[in-house]
């Protein structure tokens, strides 16, 4: 192969890479997940039917269990249509709180973006189809942390 041909191949590769853009390359390289790239429009995460899909769509690469997250949920929920959930994070700069239900038809229940000045605290009410673990996923300082809890559901509400 002549030097000029090698150059041409190289140029093609560069051109292809340029087309994808830096963001695409970072995604391809696994440095960031697509979810991070489009945090504002992550409706796809709400369609997720499995925990892996949901975490992927949210851009969660890894999440550590954290004792700084308190997840309040009833041990037994008699009415799955209204299950009170409280998430409290004492992690500094808590910027996002997600509530996920492992065995619901769609995993992600709610996603909260917490600006500075607002505390890492949310109370809400969710539906649960059956007994399942509930997961609070908290993003603080760019990293994800989690806490989970099993909630027994006597009458499903989905």
């Amino acid at each position: 192969m002549h030097k000029s041909e090698v150059d041409l191949e190289r140029r093609k590769a560069l051109k292809a890479g340029g087309g994808i853009g830096l963001l695409g390359l970072l995604v391809a390289a696994g440095l960031i997940r697509p979810g991070i790239a489009s945090a504002a429009s992550n409706r796809a995460a709400f369609e997720a039917k499995t925990m892996d899909e949901a975490l992927n769509a949210l851009g969660v690469v890894i999440s550590e269990n954290s004792l700084a997250i308190q997840l309040g949920a009833p041990e037994v929920a008699e009415n799955g249509a209204v299950v009170p959930i409280t998430v409290e994070s004492t992690l500094s700069r808590t910027e996002q709180i997600c509530i996920l239900v492992n065995k619901n038809p769609t995993i992600l229940a709610a996603n909260f973006l917490v600006p500075e000045g607002t505390e890492g605290f949310i109370t809400t009410r969710i539906r649960m189809a059956e007994t399942s673990s509930v997961i609070a996923l908290v993003k603080a300082n760019g990293k994800f942390y989690r806490a989970s809890r099993e909630v027994k559901v006597t009458a499903g509400g989905c």
């Binding site: 992550n42 409706r43 709400f46 249509a81 209204v82 299950v83 239900v101 619901n104 038809p105 769609t106 992600l108 229940a109 709610a110 996603n111 909260f112 973006l113 809400t124 009410r125 969710i126 539906r127 649960m128 509400g157 989905c158």
Partner: peptide
């Protein structure tokens, strides 16, 4: 906040 269908 963004909600899915599991919010009461």
């Amino acid at each position: 906040a963004q909600f899915g269908t599991s919010v009461s």
